[in-house]
């Protein structure tokens, strides 16, 4: 037995280790980027330790305690809190309404490739194919425009266009989150198991019925789960929206910050904390029920 192993043509010298160029190139790039960024971002860690920075932090921290729980202040907050919730709900709803159809159009496997379009490719009129592919590319571009521009820039512009209040906030969330939802929806739909779709198509179902009976039932848990996640983000985003005058709790936060009322800031941050945590728990719960049901 020993013979069998030692007779194998194995040299006793160590084989060379493989260094991939990938690692070397990327490490160098990483270091260069790091150094460049370090200069550009004007990083001065000592700033945190200098007397002035220290004094400011100290002032901030001591200023926060005790939090402002006076009725005068707290009674001011009811409306912004409710507004924040309404804004996030309505904004997410609008994002779904816009994002879902766009997401369908941006799904490669629905519009121009994959089994659903195999036949069409064979006896295709080339113009139809190009039209479809063109639509797909256009929708993708629109979605990426929607989502790359941050929600506060949208909000800023909408405030300019339609005035202050929660309405521009809803529009901002609706547009920018439509871009994110649309993209992720299309990714989810593209990764659905194509088997059932194929057998549905074989029964002569139309594209719409295939969507309803094959695609959506499979994708629904993931779609809902991601939408819930975006709703959580919308609650957080409402802080920045308030800053630009688009309603919600952020407006109050900016005022308190401007007036150096740090005890109010603490109250507001605590409220935000509770809201975010609450939404977190709620959506986790919904997610779990959806997932458990769909797995039956």
């Amino acid at each position: 037995m020993q013979n069998r192993h030692s007779s194998a043509p194995v040299s006793l010298t160590l084989p060379a280790r493989r260094h991939s160029n990938f690692q070397i190139v990327w490490s160098v790039l990483f270091i260069l980027t790091f150094l460049g960024s370090y200069r550009l971002a004007q990083v001065k860690p000592l700033l945190l330790l200098e007397p002035e920075g220290r004094r400011n932090i100290w002032r901030f921290v001591t200023g926060m305690f005790p939090p402002d729980l006076s009725w005068d202040f707290v009674s001011l907050l009811g409306r912004p809190i409710i507004e924040t919730i309404q804004l996030s709900l309505m904004g997410t709803f609008m994002a779904v309404v816009i994002g879902f159809p766009l997401g369908l159009l941006a799904t490669r496997s629905l519009t121009f490739t994959g089994i659903l379009n195999e036949r069409e490719m064979v006896d295709s009129r080339r113009s139809v194919f190009l039209l479809r592919k063109g639509t797909y590319l256009l929708v993708r571009a629109i979605l990426s425009l929607f989502r790359t521009i941050p929600e506060f820039v949208w909000a800023f512009m909408f405030v300019r266009a339609v005035g202050l209040g929660p309405f521009p906030g809803v529009l901002a969330i609706g547009i920018s989150y439509a871009g994110m939802l649309g993209k992720v929806y299309s990714e989810i739909l593209e990764h659905v198991n194509p088997g059932p779709l194929e057998s549905l198509q074989a029964t002569g179902a139309s594209r719409l019925t295939i969507l309803l009976y094959g695609l959506l039932p499979q994708a629904l848990p993931n779609l809902v789960s991601y939408t819930l996640y975006r709703w959580e983000c919308a609650i957080r985003a409402s802080t920045i929206l308030g800053f630009v005058g688009a309603g919600g709790i952020g407006q109050q936060l900016e005022i308190s910050m401007r007036m150096f009322n740090f005890n109010q800031v603490l109250t507001l941050v605590a409220i935000l904390f509770v809201m975010v945590a609450g939404v977190d728990v709620l959506s986790a719960k919904v997610r779990r029920t959806i997932l458990s049901r769909s797995s039956v």
Binding site: R4, H5, S6, A8, V10, L12, L14, P15, R17, R18
Partner: peptide, 19 residues
């Protein structure tokens, strides 16, 4: 101690799989 590892692998007949 790559040589130690190589020796051990040689005993079980898969020295070529070192890396």
């Amino acid at each position: 101690e790559a040589d130690l590892a190589l020796e051990a692998l040689r005993h079980v007949g898969i020295a070529d799989k070192l890396y």
